[in-house]
Amino acid sequence: MIRTFSILLIFQCLGEGLVYLTGLPVPGPVIGMLLLFVFLLMRKTEAAKLVPGVQTLLGHLSLLFIPAGVGIMVHGKMVMEEWLPLTLALIISTAVSIVVTALCVKWLQK
Rank of each mutant, 00 (worst) to 15 (best):
M1D: 10
M1R: 14
M1T: 09
I2L: 13
I2V: 14
I2A: 12
I2H: 10
R3F: 15
R3H: 13
F5V: 07
F5R: 07
S6M: 12
S6V: 13
I7A: 03
I7P: 04
L9S: 07
L9D: 04
I10C: 10
I10K: 05
F11M: 02
F11D: 00
Q12V: 12
C13I: 14
L14M: 12
L14R: 04
L14F: 15
G15N: 02
G15V: 00
E16N: 08
E16A: 09
G17V: 05
G17E: 05
G17M: 08
L18H: 07
L18P: 06
Y20S: 10
Y20C: 09
L21Y: 09
L21W: 08
G23I: 03
G23D: 05
P25N: 01
P25V: 00
V26H: 10
V26S: 06
P27E: 02
P29N: 10
M33P: 05
M33D: 09
M33F: 14
L34M: 06
L36Q: 02
L36V: 03
F37S: 11
F37G: 09
V38H: 08
F39W: 13
L40N: 01
L41N: 14
R43W: 15
E46W: 15
A48S: 15
K49H: 10
L50G: 00
V51D: 04
V51H: 06
V51G: 02
V51K: 13
P52H: 14
V54P: 07
Q55F: 12
L57E: 07
L58P: 02
G59I: 03
G59Y: 03
L61T: 07
L61N: 06
S62Q: 14
L64I: 04
P67G: 01
A68C: 07
G69W: 05
G69T: 06
G71V: 01
G71S: 04
I72A: 04
I72Y: 07
M73A: 12
V74G: 03
V74T: 03
H75F: 09
G76M: 10
K77D: 07
M78A: 14
V79E: 00
V79A: 01
M80K: 06
M80R: 07
M80I: 02
E81T: 01
E81Q: 02
W83R: 09
P85M: 00
L86A: 04
L88D: 01
L88M: 05
A89N: 01
L90Q: 07
I92M: 11
S93K: 06
S93C: 09
T94H: 11
T94M: 13
T94A: 13
T94V: 08
S97E: 11
I98D: 08
I98Q: 09
V99L: 12
V99C: 06
V99T: 11
V99R: 12
V99E: 11
V100I: 13
V100G: 06
T101K: 11
T101N: 13
A102H: 07
L103G: 07
L103M: 12
L103N: 12
C104T: 10
C104F: 13
V105I: 12
V105E: 06
V105K: 12
K106M: 12
W107I: 09
Q109S: 05
K110V: 10
K110C: 09
